[in-house]
């Protein structure tokens, strides 16, 4: 039994009334490199509820991206299980759409609109091309890219490419949108703008999103609930609420306080690790 996950779920006020959308329970994920078998996460558990903006936060090496790939179905856990609406996740599917950090996630041979209709048609969302066109245009307008619908991805800026990827993900209306550091490759100004736009989009439909980041500030702004992971291997450190925080109160004391608290949690690990390393050196 994973005690960390149990207490975290118990604290959530919604836990009793609503069924969780995504239930990750005691999941250990491992992947192989040429020489090593690496344990990315060790017995991680959390529950995502509908309309959550659930953030996986942690330093590099805490397995947060691996965890997201597990939920997406690209990896099977060696231990524990992951259920979406009570059904075991076995393989990738259009009910969980990924938005990646890389700009090359758009198909370069398709225009902005075709990238979205491609997803809608192949993902089984639309039967006819005209239906797909209509939905695609609706979401292109939502991310403010009308006039660019017939442009090929290589003509777009990084921010615009990410907008297309988000529009494509949202157009699929998946049970859960999986975002793997989607704004990490953007410049600071564009990143802030994209965070605001994402929150505005969320206001419209209250979709469920699982968001990976290594930025504490981004986690607080974007997230409604934050899972803090410690590295090597990734384990649950804490689960915190951030639904009351956004861009407007970054200067407030409670924003700063929570930021400092998470920083200390992650930083304490590093000190501990250094002490352990020093201790081993002595023996």
């Amino acid at each position: 039994m994973d005690q960390g996950a149990q207490t975290a779920a118990g604290n959530s006020p919604a836990a009793a009334a609503v069924d969780p959308l995504l239930d990750v329970d005691g999941v250990t994920l491992q992947y192989k490199t040429k020489e090593h078998l690496i344990t990315a996460t060790y017995r991680v558990g959390f529950k995502v509820y509908p309309a959550d903006r659930f953030v996986l936060l942690g330093p590099s090496g805490c397995g947060k991206s691996t965890l997201l790939k597990g939920v997406a179905g690209y990896m099977r856990p060696v231990e524990g299980n992951m259920r979406l609406k009570g059904v075991d996740i076995k393989e990738p599917g259009p009910d969980r759409v990924m938005v990646f950090q890389e700009f090359d996630q758009l198909l370069p041979w398709k225009t902005v609109k075709q990238n979205i209709t491609f997803a809608l048609m192949n993902g089984g969302k639309c039967k006819t091309q005209s239906e797909a066109d209509e939905i695609a245009m609706e979401y292109i307008k939502k991310v403010k890219l009308d006039r660019f619908e017939d442009t090929f991805p290589h003509m777009l800026s990084g921010g615009m490419k990410q907008r297309v990827a988000i529009a494509r993900g949202m157009a699929m209306e998946p049970d859960i949108l999986l975002m793997d550091e989607p704004f990490a490759a953007l410049d600071a100004l564009t990143r802030r703008q994209m965070q605001e736009e994402l929150l505005q989009l969320w206001e419209d439909t209250h979709f469920t999103v699982l968001f990976v980041t290594h930025s504490i500030e981004e986690a607080l702004i974007v997230g409604s609930r934050i899972l803090v992971l410690s590295p090597h291997p990734g384990q649950v450190k804490a689960e915190l609420n951030a639904h009351h925080l956004n861009h407007d109160n970054t200067a407030d004391p409670n924003f700063r306080e929570l930021q400092q608290k998470i920083h200390d949690m992650l930083f304490a690990d590093r000190i501990l690790e250094e002490e352990l390393a020093a201790g081993q050196g002595d023996q």
Binding site: A72, Y74, E91, P94, A119, G123
Partner: peptide, 9 residues
């Protein structure tokens, strides 16, 4: 790109 393809089934 491979993952995107698999994602859409």
């Amino acid at each position: 790109l491979r993952m995107i393809g698999e994602n859409y089934g």
